[in-house]
């Protein structure tokens, strides 16, 4: 006789003991796919821009890297602490990772604006914003579980 909790867990696709591993694997797979796709998009855009202008091409690349490096740091930190099971510790870890991600983003923006000359800021921002939008789109498309909740 299964309890109400067990039935509920099964109804959302979780086995009782395998749930954590299963979700860790799904999480890692999803994030790695999204990051790789974004790296691919950014590289392709930079390659395309090479035909137009070299400055635009490396501005596109910098825009992509400013987005991708903090995101990689964020995902890496979440992945390193993936076995936490206390919600308060999970939340504290996410807050620290988030703060690090934002700080790294700010530092990268400052370094690029101060050190890279000449720079095409429009190309940089368009790539940055485009990668943010692809992140939303890909997460929603690849994570079909959002639709079940």
């Amino acid at each position: 006789m299964t309890s109400q909790y067990e039935r509920r867990i099964e109804s959302v696709g979780l086995a009782k003991k395998k749930g954590l591993n299963k979700f860790n694997q799904r999480f890692a797979k999803l994030y790695i796919i999204v990051l790789l796709l974004q790296l691919l998009i950014c590289s392709l855009l930079a390659l395309l821009m090479m035909f137009k202008d070299f400055v635009t091409a490396y501005s596109v690349l910098f825009g992509g890297m400013i987005y991708l490096l903090p995101m990689c740091w964020f995902v890496f930190r979440l992945w390193m602490n993936r076995n936490l099971d206390n919600p308060q510790k999970i939340l504290a870890n996410v807050y620290i990772s988030k703060a690090g991600k934002m700080a790294l983003g700010v530092v990268l923006f400052v370094v690029v604006f101060l050190k890279v000359e000449p720079l095409d800021p429009l190309a940089l921002f368009i790539t940055y914003i485009f990668l943010q939008i692809t992140s939303w789109y890909l997460q929603l498309k690849l994570n079909e579980r959002f639709l079940k909740l």
Binding site: Y5, P87, V94, Q139, R145
Partner: peptide, 26 residues
């Protein structure tokens, strides 16, 4: 009992929250 599932969804959504603020910061 749903912490593993909530955690995964939380990780995913929290990565999307700061998009517009970061564009403003940039």
């Amino acid at each position: 009992e749903l912490v593993p599932m909530l955690r995964s969804q939380f990780f995913i959504v929290v990565g999307l929250v700061d998009a517009i603020p970061m564009i403003g910061v940039g």
